[in-house]
Design a protein around this nucleic acid. Structure first.
Length: 550
RNA sequence: GGGCUGUUAGCUCAGUCAGGUAGAGCAACGGACUCUUAAUCCGUCGGCCAGGGGUUCAAAUCCCUUACAGCCCGCCA
């Protein structure tokens, strides 16, 4: 078999592994994030990576349940500098009631009052809602579960019991993976009934009554400094507190019967190896099939909610179609990728090529097996939206306006004019079905947003007023000739030719003449191809502008 | 100090698992379309596949090693 024929979509390979296990129906795939702050594109890995595997398995006839735990029983351990409000706008601590956060360090996210104007009860619920919106924007149906609810419902009772019954084994296993596991290590963190903090200071465990006696001694913040507790002495049930992370994760696998879970590289060498052993030795289950994904960076630095170094899915869907967001997550998870929104046009080009490859419209095949397998999943929702579920044959007639050209088209917000220009350029046809035009033209607004956000060379905007430029005699005459020519009514080819002709006749360098025109229209030195533009724009406007009359 | 992952053209990436003549897009440069102006088409340039060593008839691919980047081995995800 040739090498090329064997290249496969990573989700297919992982699915093979999952399939090779004896599985009960349904196959359960999990992802998780703690709702600690602004959800960003890195978090979407927890949803998208599992999604592709889920879709592959569904395609093979399995029923798959994809779930996502919002780990909202985790404590707030650090106050983020930058947060995201209910409109996905970034806000600083000054814009919200930051005191609420300071007072609640150490308290589970699900119990911290919501400092935003959103409708949710808690800080945790606010960010869980944004995570849900992220999944929706990506078009992934996924079931959300609150870890707090799981504790409250007693879902973890059995695993807490198993962990506390086997303390010596727990300590033995953990010390293989962590240094300084103390002799009195307890894998359970009680929540102080008085100050509501997850705290240390366990005094006694009563396995008969299934309670933990504690004296609230405080907790460690994100920097590892100890924060004092309130000193309250109390008793916690197995539901009033939580397993420490290294045990909660494998407990999740048991309680939710997880078969597959993707996780970030931060877990790959820490909690995953210990989690496997804990799953087998303490909870008596086989751990899920793992998959490690690399992190994205921005400018080479890790995405960080607390530092505000983030790109959200909302930022991305402003610039590109949802299928391109999905495409991004279909790429090899092993590679660290830098998210450079200034160069998002390259990603779009890459997607367009990926799409052409699926339909056999490209000349050079790169990795056809990958596009054959991944493309239908990438565009699933898009196809459903425009032509009906699964009708990839009909969707083949879609058109994509090259992204940079779409950005240039955004110079005018008149949709009909955009269509007109794209038409003249033969990117779309007048007799195409409406959806084709809508899908294609939809890119213009996004490209426009891109040009505006990054103030790049595609940021053309027709100047409302006549820019102040000195025009000397020859150029003035040339402009007048051009104005008259346009006024007579000519097509784009004729106008384009006339520009050269007029420049020549007036002994002006052609480059200079173009530049003057662009300055008049955009107050910039360069611009889109002039003939088609002048032909497409409102004739009266063009004539007036060339005469510097308005 | 130990471990995991990555490093392929100026840029963005395929290709590495199962070794078989280094690929694409963009950029650049040249040309075509009566036309330096973001469309389209043709062409050119561009790489010791991070460096070194090994295995092999054959290595981007397997092994060892070095460098660089990120992460883990405290807490937390």
């Amino acid at each position: 078999m040739s090498k090329e024929a064997d290249r496969r979509f990573w989700a297919e390979k992982i699915s093979d592994e999952i399939e090779n296990r004896k599985l009960e129906d349904p196959i359960v795939i999990k992802g998780a994030v703690s709702p600690s702050g602004s959800p960003h594109l890195g978090h979407l890995n927890e949803i998208m990576r599992g999604y592709y595997v889920a879709e592959v398995l569904r395609g093979r006839g399995y029923s798959v349940r994809q779930i996502f735990t919002s780990d909202d029983k985790d404590a707030l351990r650090k106050i983020p500098n930058i947060l995201t409000d209910e409109n996905w706008d970034l806000v600083g601590l000054g814009d919200i009631d930051a005191k609420v956060l300071g007072k609640n360090l150490g308290v589970p996210y699900s119990e911290i009052p919501n400092p935003f104007n959103s409708e949710y009860k808690s800080y945790g619920d606010h960010f869980t809602a944004l995570l849900k919106e992220s999944a929706e924007m990506a078009g992934v149906p996924i079931e959300f579960i609150s870890t707090t609810d799981m504790y409250n419902e007693g879902a973890f009772d059995e695993t807490v019991r198993e962990a506390l019954q086997n303390l010596s084994k727990v300590r033995e296993i953990l010390s293989k993976y962590q240094r300084n596991v103390s002799e009195d290590y307890i894998p359970f963190i009680p929540q102080c009934e008085k100050c509501r903090r997850l705290t240390t200071g366990v005094k006694r465990i009563d396995m008969e009554l299934e309670v933990i006696e504690y004296e609230c001694e405080g907790f460690a913040d994100a920097e590892g400094s100890r924060m004092g507790g309130c000193g309250h002495r109390g008793v916690a049930t197995f539901r009033e507190g939580k397993l420490s992370w290294r045990f909660e994760w494998p407990a999740d696998w048991k309680v939710l019967k997880i078969d597959f879970e993707p996780f970030g590289k931060d877990h790959a060498e820490g909690s995953w190896p210990s989690g496997q052993e804990i799953a087998r030795e303490i909870f008596g289950i086989e751990p899920p099939i793992p998959m490690v994904y690399e992190w994205f960076t921005i400018g080479g630095k890790a995405l960080s909610s607390s530092k505000g170094n983030i790109v959200t899915i909302r930022d991305l869907v402003e610039l590109v179609e949802p299928e391109i967001v999905r495409y991004f997550f279909a790429k090899n998870p092993n590679k660290q990728r830098d998210l450079n929104l200034e160069k998002i046009d390259i990603l779009v080009d890459e997607f367009d090529e990926f799409e052409r490859e699926y339909y056999g419209e490209n000349s050079q095949k790169i990795s056809p097996n990958v596009s054959m397998s991944a493309y239908p999943m990438v565009v699933k929702n898009t196809v459903e939206k425009w032509v009906g579920e699964g009708d990839l044959g009909a969707f083949k007639s879609r058109r994509r306006i090259p992204y940079r050209f779409a950005a240039a088209l955004g110079m005018n917000d008149d949709r009909n004019l955009q269509i007109e220009i794209a038409n003249r350029r033969k990117i779309i046809d007048k007799d195409m079905e409406d959806w084709v035009t809508s899908l294609a033209i939809g890119r213009v607004e996004r490209g426009r947003q891109w040009a505006e956000n990054y103030q790049n060379e595609y940021n053309y905007q027709l100047s409302r007023k006549v820019p102040e430029i000195e025009i000397d005699g020859e150029i003035g005459r040339a402009l007048e000739e051009l104005a008259s020519f346009v006024e007579e009514g000519h097509n784009e080819v004729e106008i384009q030719e006339a520009i050269y002709e007029i420049a020549k006749n007036n002994e002006i360098e052609i480059g200079q003449f173009f530049e003057v025109n662009y300055r008049l229209l955009f107050a910039q030195e360069r611009g889109p191809r002039l003939g088609p533009l002048l032909a497409a724009l409102d004739r009266e406007f063009v004539v007036m502008r060339l005469r510097r009359e308005g």
